[in-house]
């Protein structure tokens, strides 16, 4: 059960969030140049060496992981034809709703995530209002919330599944 793609899905999302964070960090280190006069219209972006390596590596890793993710998803759909999932479905993939017991576990995990957001969103809004925070750090804050959301969901589901498998 722990190897079920839907159980592992939050881990995938957390990985993609970290990679997105690296990409944003790399972009935030870039310097831009915009020249617009009668003679020319020019726009340039320059990345320092470390940021360039980070950006290229994170883009490469993201594409690689998207391929592996798609293969895993396709394998899951072949293994469980009655519980197919899609990358584009509106309903979150991590929901386990095969039966009432699994729906119960999903509900508990979702409640914990909801409780987290009830506190985290106003807290973050206050921080953003009180302090002058650069735009990139604001984005990092949102990514952090998203990361914690998936972490809470994953840990809650895994706790029940692990207890059950003991």
């Amino acid at each position: 059960m722990k190897k079920d793609f839907r159980v592992q899905y939050p881990l995938w999302q957390m990985t993609f969030i970290v990679l997105l964070g690296f990409m944003i960090f790399s972009i935030s280190g870039a310097s831009t140049e915009f020249i617009h006069n009668d003679d020319e219209l020019r726009f340039g972006v320059e990345f320092p060496p470390l940021e360039s390596i980070l950006l290229i590596s994170s883009i490469f890793l993201t594409f690689l992981l998207i391929v592996v993710f798609s293969l895993k998803l396709s394998k899951h759909n072949k293994q469980y034809p009655t519980q197919k999932v899609s990358m584009w479905q509106i309903r979150p993939i991590e929901y386990l709703e095969q039966d009432e017991g699994m729906t119960h576990i999903t509900r508990r995990a979702a409640q914990k995530v909801y409780t987290f957001f009830v506190w985290a969103l106003p807290f973050m809004a206050v921080i953003y209002m009180v302090f002058e925070i650069p735009r990139y750090w604001m984005i990092f804050g949102i990514l952090l919330l998203a990361f914690i959301q998936y972490l809470i969901f994953y840990l809650e589901v895994r706790k029940h599944i692990e207890e059950d498998e003991e």
Binding site: M1, Q98, E100, G101, M102, I105
Partner: peptide
């Protein structure tokens, strides 16, 4: 008509 896990949750009184 339920999963093995659901039977486990019932037995433990989790659900």
């Amino acid at each position: 008509g339920v999963t093995r896990q659901t039977i486990g949750f019932i037995e433990k009184g989790d659900f």
